[in-house]
Nucleic acid binder design. Structure first.
Lengths: 102, 102
DNA sequence: GCTGTACATGCCTTGACAGGCATATGCTGT
DNA sequence: ACAGCATATGCCTGTCAAGGCATGTACAGC
């Protein structure tokens, strides 16, 4: 399943959002209100698409977002960006969108 | 149908790409190899999602990409961008991705 | 070794979408 | 008014994905 297809599912986007910080499956279940099996299935899809990473700690599995495919999405957007911005405008808006820390 | 869902279809992405320059339906048919009805249906979906604009010229309909939803997609990406870039790296890669003309 | 907890997988049903084909609509020139 | 081109729509079918429920697997502590 390719990136766009995977991201088409709203619950998966919600999960991705939660996984900006590393979390065990249970937290995702609580955070989404989905059943545990449903979450596990979404996580499988996300993992197979390279959108998340897993790490086993005891009987828990800790998931976390992976940058790679999203970066590709960002690159896919490139040709279209000029539709709403000229060179310098783009620069500014991206700076605005950046967090201030670190 | 929401933006992500619309973009999940490869042929629709192909069509979007073609419509970076304004074109009549026939050109899209040629450019994709899809049947004319199939193209018309995709264009309908794209239009209803605000991803393209139509303009009637005689018996032709000229389609063209609209920025808005793609811009939202770009904003959706914001929280994830910090995964692969720090402030200045982001600046560079975006400059690289920019076309040189204009 | 057993029980409980955390997660994954299998099976099934339902719903939605993509495309094919036929047909409708709208405009053009004669 | 008519013929023809450009595009849209309707109907039908095959395919596939999402979630529910039941069950499997793995690790932990006693």
């Amino acid at each position: 399943m390719e990136t766009f297809e995977v991201l088409a599912e709203p619950n998966r986007r919600r999960i991705l959002d939660l996984l900006l910080v590393e979390r065990p499956v249970g937290d995702v279940v609580d955070g989404t209100g989905l059943s545990q099996p449903a979450v596990s299935k979404h996580l499988r899809v996300l993992r197979e698409a390279g959108l998340v990473d897993v790490r086993a700690v005891a009987q828990r599995r800790l998931y976390r977002v992976r940058a790679e495919p999203l970066r590709e999405l960002d690159e896919w957007l490139a040709p279209y960006r000029r539709l709403w911005s000229r060179r310098l405008d783009a620069l500014e808006s991206h700076l605005d969108a950046m967090p201030d820390d670190d």
